[in-house]
């Protein structure tokens, strides 16, 4: 019985420490990833697309080649650096477009009455039940593959989730007294949305962006692996895995590096998203 009072306060402290750890790891990985992508614009150890047949299939740690070379003698580390650039651009691009459209649609659904809400919400439901990978394939078939197509496909795929999440966050903000007060002051709806609702759903928006940034990187890797995403001279981690499997068979250590890169970056972004959610949305944090 005497133990209980001391045990109780210890618990939240430990949880807070774990939360900070999650956020810290997430921030470190994400910053390293963005730094790697940015650095690739200024410095690359080798030209990632230039074959050097005498140097083919060197193991990691060979002089001049940090992670070795692929079947055509191209430097793996340089390819990973350029691949980070693609992941960053496509993942962030897809999530950003979805964020913008999803915010407009979500806020409109929450603020402009039953008809608008029903139309937007049911539209989002319909879009959610169309498999994203299949949509992306169709887009690649019709407008051709490439980074831009992939961003478009991701936006079509992610926007309904953004719409739903932002709609429900906005709906609960709309119940607050300060919204009623603003209405009494006869503020126009768009003003209330921008001045009062938007800042209060910003936390949800940031978390959603981070998590779908990660999902975008995974989807892009998948599409490029299938050969309908990014193609050379652009480089993608998914494309590298595809080439590794085709050129030298899967027993090659070449299949390790791009896969590890994807896992680490996606994990980092997910941890960042979870950590941010705990900080920005105390209601959810209490539950988990």
């Amino acid at each position: 019985m005497t133990l209980a009072p001391t045990a109780t306060p210890a618990k939240p402290k430990r949880r807070r420490r774990r939360r900070n750890l999650t956020l810290t790891i997430g921030i470190v990985i994400t910053v390293a990833f963005i730094a790697m992508a940015m650095a690739s614009f200024f410095y690359l150890p080798h030209n990632p697309n230039l074959p050097r047949i005498p140097d083919r299939l060197l193991p990691a740690g060979s002089p001049g080649y940090l992670l070795g070379t692929d079947a055509l003698g191209r430097d793996i580390f340089s390819q990973l650096m350029v691949g980070a650039r693609t992941s960053l651009m496509v993942g962030a691009g897809g999530a950003l477009i979805s964020l913008v459209i999803g915010t407009i649609a979500g806020l409109s659904a929450a603020a402009f009455g039953r008809m608008a809400d029903e139309t937007i919400s049911r539209g989002a439901d319909i879009m959610l039940s169309i498999p994203g990978m299949v949509t992306a394939l169709v887009l690649a078939a019709t407008i051709g593959s490439g980074a831009l197509t992939t961003i478009l496909a991701l936006s079509a795929f992610f926007t309904p989730s953004f719409t739903r999440v932002i709609r429900s966050a906005a709906l609960s903000v709309m119940q607050e007294d300060f919204i009623t007060a603003a209405r009494l002051y006869d503020r126009p709806t768009w003003f209330i949305l921008l001045r009062h609702v938007l800042p209060n759903v910003a936390g949800v928006m940031i978390v959603q962006f981070t998590l779908y940034f990660a999902a975008g990187i995974l989807t892009e890797a998948g599409l490029s692996y299938l050969g309908v995403g990014v193609t050379r001279p652009s480089i993608s981690w998914g494309m590298m895995l595809n080439e590794a499997q085709q050129q030298v068979g899967i027993s090659s250590p070449l299949a390790m590096w791009p896969g590890l890169a994807i896992v680490i970056v996606v994990l980092g972004l997910n941890l960042l998203g979870d950590g941010l959610r705990d900080v920005l949305d105390p209601k959810l944090a209490r539950r988990a």
Binding site: G222, L241, A255, G259, V263, V266, L267, L271
Partner: peptide
């Protein structure tokens, strides 16, 4: 489960086939 979410399904496939196949 957190790590598993970050693993692309095709990489899981490649690794499994590397281990159990090769």
């Amino acid at each position: 489960s957190q790590v598993g979410i970050a693993v692309p399904v095709f990489w899981a496939g490649i690794l499994l086939s590397l281990l159990f196949g090769v």
